[in-house]
Write a protein that binds this DNA or RNA. Structure first.
Lengths: 226, 226
DNA sequence: ATCTGAAATTTGATATATCAATTTGCCGCG
DNA sequence: CGCGGCAAATTGATATATCAAATTTCAGAT
């Protein structure tokens, strides 16, 4: 087993339910590598470490199992299944879903949303000049959010968010390379153009290639950290 | 190790945990329309109806929530969120993921797997002649399974299976149309050719269009039933 | 020393009790 | 009649106890 002793307390204010809080703790521990593929989780022990009962923990583990991060064997144990190979597949899943969202966005986007996308591109170019990486990260998120909203696909959006395994620091590191910053903005502009011209097929392909290319860089970073 | 293959006389039904069983019951009720979008579920009442305690039910509901079929509001209630719009989005999700799987399959497929695909196509043609719809359904599943295996993507495969909302009867009805049977086999052959020639881009596009076109027919059927 | 198998232990599965937030209903006041 | 507001009822959240399957331990036989 790997280092779940470093998983921490649940003391913080009751902003959300224990199960949601614990879900986040364990998921982060898995994604960040504190819990590695093959590690066994003990319900009682983990609940006791967190200072909670097994009920909310069991519910959190069920969600993680539904997401494919752990596998539960009846009366045997709960094992972490997430590894580098799955990280790559989750990136591919993001690419698949995000590109389908872009496809739908190209079909349903409004003129106002096109304007929002173009404005964001302009701001991204400004961010390139000032080398404001944090600002670029925020703009990237807003850019994708506008596309999500344009698509009108709430379920796909939700499904997509479940495939996110990149931390803020990983994003910072990836965008610390000037070449990457420029390429990302170029790709975003091409995607915005495709959506603006209602070219669903092109928007889908460009988005897929963008997510995969950018994702590979993140994955390299993640692997380097572990 | 080994030899346990002949020692499994236990009924599968009893091996399944209550939570898994209940999960299946509620999911089917939602997908089939017995529970409609907006319906409120009461934990105690439902547990009592099913003759179980709330513990396994809560876990089942957490999984359904993770899948986006219900939404839980703390100390307020659990509401069914699945509706026709989400059914369409789940079909799009299937198309997105299945096409990504086809893309990976085109990259990693072996000669033996290509042979399997070609054999299945031949059998499908035979099924067209004999109008054996059940056989066609089984062949379709095997066809997609070979592609899944060729892709080597276990996570994507799992994610894909979560998007399945078609019943056997729905498949029967859709394939009851001769035009649909022929078109499906034609599309399958084109997909097999693309994968055989390692054309990832084409395989992805063909698979996506196939799942969407075929999915729309299923959705029309589902809507007609409700 | 190795194998067998039964007892003790572990552990997830399930049931039940309790807590606390929310809703509901009723009463009185304007 | 309408509107606050408090008490009771409802309900999901959490804690704890119990059950049963799986694993481990270890005595006894070979």
């Amino acid at each position: 087993m790997g280092g779940e002793d470093t998983l921490l307390p649940v003391e913080p204010v009751f902003l959300k339910s224990l199960r949601d809080h614990v879900y986040g703790l364990v998921r982060d521990a898995i994604i960040s590598g504190k819990l590695k593929g093959g590690d066994k989780l003990n319900e009682r022990q983990l609940a006791s470490q967190l200072g909670i009962s097994t009920t909310p923990l069991k519910e959190a583990l069920r969600v993680l199992e539904a997401e494919g991060l752990v596998r539960s064997e009846a009366r045997r144990g709960i094992y972490v299944t997430f590894d580098a190979a799955q990280a790559e597949e989750m990136m591919l899943a993001r690419a698949a879903i995000e590109s389908m969202i872009a496809r739908q966005a190209a079909k349903h986007v409004t003129k106002a949303q096109v304007t929002q996308l173009r404005t964001l591109i302009v701001e991204m170019r400004a961010g390139l000049e000032t080398v404001d990486v944090l600002e670029l990260i925020a703009l990237n998120e807003r850019f994708h959010n506008v596309i999500h909203e344009a698509s009108g696909c709430g379920y796909l959006r939700r499904l997509q968010s479940g495939q996110n395994i990149y931390t803020q620091t990983a994003r910072l590191i990836v965008l610390s390379e000037e070449r990457e910053r420029f390429q990302a903005v170029e790709e975003h502009e091409a995607i915005a153009d495709a959506i603006a011209s209602h070219d669903a097929e092109l928007a889908e392909r460009l988005m897929r290639d963008h997510v995969i290319r950018s994702g590979e860089k993140h994955l390299i970073r993640v692997q380097a950290e572990n």
